[in-house]
Amino acid sequence: MSKPFLSVENLTQIYPDGQGGDLTVFEDATFGVEKGEFVVILGHSGCGKSTIMNILAGLAEPSSGVVKMDGFEVSGPSLDRGVVFQNYSLLPWLSTLKNVTFGVAARHPEWSRQQVIDHSKNYLAMVGLEGDVIHRKPSQLSGGMRQRVSIARAFANHPKLLLLDEPFGALDALTRGTIQDELLKIWGGTEQTVFMITHDIDEAILLADRILLMSNGPFARVAESVEITIPRPRNRTDIVEHANYYAIRNHLVHFLGQRSKEISGKAKGSATNRPETVRIDRTGPAADGPGDAPRRLRAVIT
């Protein structure tokens, strides 16, 4: 099988522990992401999720290992990899619209001013920001609206890979639900490849094609790759009715609650560093026909 679109190979991160020694956060993380796939990574704090995200974004350097996108090694940040940060990272002295045009103008320096503004307004409208709101400063917006701006800024640039670093972590549950729906809607219209960090299991199931599970740090590793065998388009109220939902959810809860601790530190045992692919499907072969089969589902082997 050919190389996946994004391939992460033997990524290891070692920090000095402050007492003269070294602390290995994660070791030999190896996985792939296909084009158009929505992959979510789940794990406890301290397992190095954010570090992996920063390495993918090019904002940090791994101690060893490589990241290849489209066959090229990633080094340094690039417009091809858009990032939505947990704390929104909007520039507070610019208006909402200017925060988006800032990105669009950087992506398309050859565009006219009007083109940049129109394009930005389109994407702001897609996340429900229209009218006077777009001329307000980020400090005059609610947390949910700020994250919408941040998402619009990222999508407006059509990056080859979109990185979401706990984008809904700072939002209340109701707002989070609304914006998750908006994210699904805006993502559904594109073939955008997304890599996302979250702490929220239900959010992960709702959004992801595949969930990567990390064991606890230090010496964390990407232990499992769980396919979400629930067909799209998904809807937060309907997916809980799906036969696979609780089976998958229970598997994830069990992993995070218990096994992530048990297998932590025992990395070198297996012959391969690749995550074990887990596919849970309770719908049976009859229901898994061509019409019902999840469109975006595929096994990924690096």
Binding site: N87, A106, R107
Partner: peptide, 12 residues
């Protein structure tokens, strides 16, 4: 650093 990162990810 977040704002600097925004600039970096936009290849400024």
């Amino acid at each position: 650093q977040d704002w600097v990162n925004v600039a970096r990810t936009h290849e400024l």
